[in-house]
């Protein structure tokens, strides 16, 4: 059974030879092929080579396009700073307020250089690995998008206290999300991963989710003719799973925060949505190999009767300082847990 078959069959709740293994190793590919991150996040061929190395080394069952939200910010005019050991982040926002954001020109999906890097990275990755594993496109959802051009402070202020501006902003971000999502699908993505920065309980409230965020996502997701996975954004989306599960085209949701109770997550999403659960990605370098193996076995034991479950990592990328043995310990747990 290929990784691609394993991934698709699990989304359908069908039997597989082992659980899909879907850690977030976008950046880690650079380590495996020995290139610096400033090149990796600019040269699509390097990204695709890195992802091919991820498949070869760790037998993952799905890959995604670069987890490069700051790159989307760059496309809107924000300035980036590159680092030796972490993905680029934004050093200067394009604008400082929601009022300025409304006046901001949106990037041309066909010609913007940073978006072109992401498209080509995805196309090359799908070409190299798409027969063996599922390849998805990751993108900022229409609620997260403004924060990449105006900063978290400015955006949370607008979401809470400048509601008169929101309709106009969301009209534009939904349109961009749909166009950008369709572009990623045209490059070979078979599913989309929607960011979760302003969807999780670390950032927003139940009231915001129900009255502001959910209607925007509903409109945006309905216009995408492909399966959508909702990422956790580095916080827990568990309190809102029951809201997100019913959004159009959503087939899988992350509930991988170590604090999340997977039984509760399953109860909230019902029995026919896939859950991605597992360990916290950004701190995977802090745990020992044996500890990781034991934690994963415990998770898999807890989910042993759950056909709609994949083992992965939450939050952003697994750090470069993570020993390969730590990632292999997760794979070993999945392999030994066996068929479903």
């Amino acid at each position: 059974m290929t990784g691609k078959e394993r991934f698709i069959l699990t989304l359908q709740g069908k039997a597989v030879d082992r659980r899909p293994f879907v850690p977030i190793l976008c950046m880690y590919g650079a380590k495996l092929i020995g290139v610096t991150l400033d090149r990796y996040y600019r040269e699509p061929a390097l990204y695709a080579a890195g992802q091919a190395a991820v498949v070869e080394r760790f037998s993952v069952d799905a890959l995604i396009s670069p987890l490069f939200y700051s790159g989307e910010g760059e496309a809107f005019g924000s300035k980036l700073r590159f680092h030796e050991f972490m993905p680029p982040n934004i050093k200067k926002m394009a604008v400082s307020s929601a009022k300025d954001y409304i006046k901001l020109g949106f990037p041309d999906i066909e010609t913007n250089p940073t978006l072109a890097y992401m498209r080509q990275s995805l196309r090359m990755t799908a070409k190299r690995c798409g027969n063996d594993v599922s390849v998805g496109g990751i993108l900022s959802n229409p609620v997260d998008l403004p924060s990449l051009a105006m900063g978290i402070d400015g955006w949370i202020d607008a979401l809470l206290f400048q509601k008169e501006l929101l309709n106009e902003i969301f009209e534009r971000t939904v349109e961009f999300f749909v166009s950008w999502g369709r572009a990623l699908l045209s490059e070979g993505a078979t599913f989309l991963v929607s960011s979760g920065g302003f969807l999780n309980s670390t950032t927003v409230t139940q009231e915001m989710v129900e009255n502001t965020i959910s209607p925007v996502l509903k409109k945006a997701y309905a216009a995408i003719n492909a399966p959508i996975v909702i990422h956790d954004g580095g916080g827990s989306i568990l309190p809102f799973l029951d809201v997100y599960k019913g959004l159009p085209n959503v087939v899988a949701l992350y509930s991988a925060s170590p604090k999340d109770n997977l039984q509760e997550a399953r109860r909230l999403v019902g029995c026919d949505n896939t859950l991605v659960g597992g360990l916290d990605g950004p701190t995977l370098d802090k745990l020992g190999r044996e500890d990781i193996y034991n934690r994963c076995r415990a998770i898999l034991e807890d989910r042993k009767d759950d056909r709609f479950f994949m083992l992965g990592t939450s939050g952003p990328d697994i750090p470069l300082s993570t020993p390969p043995e730590n990632i292999l310990a997760m794979l070993q747990a999945v392999t030994e847990a066996g068929c479903m």
């Binding site: 949370i156 202020d157 979401l159 809470l160 206290f161 309980s201 670390t202 950032t203 927003v204 409230t205």
Partner: peptide, 14 residues
Amino acid sequence: SGQISLAQSYTATK
């Protein structure tokens, strides 16, 4: 301790 959200903290400071 992760018991309230960024939005709630922000509201409090405002």
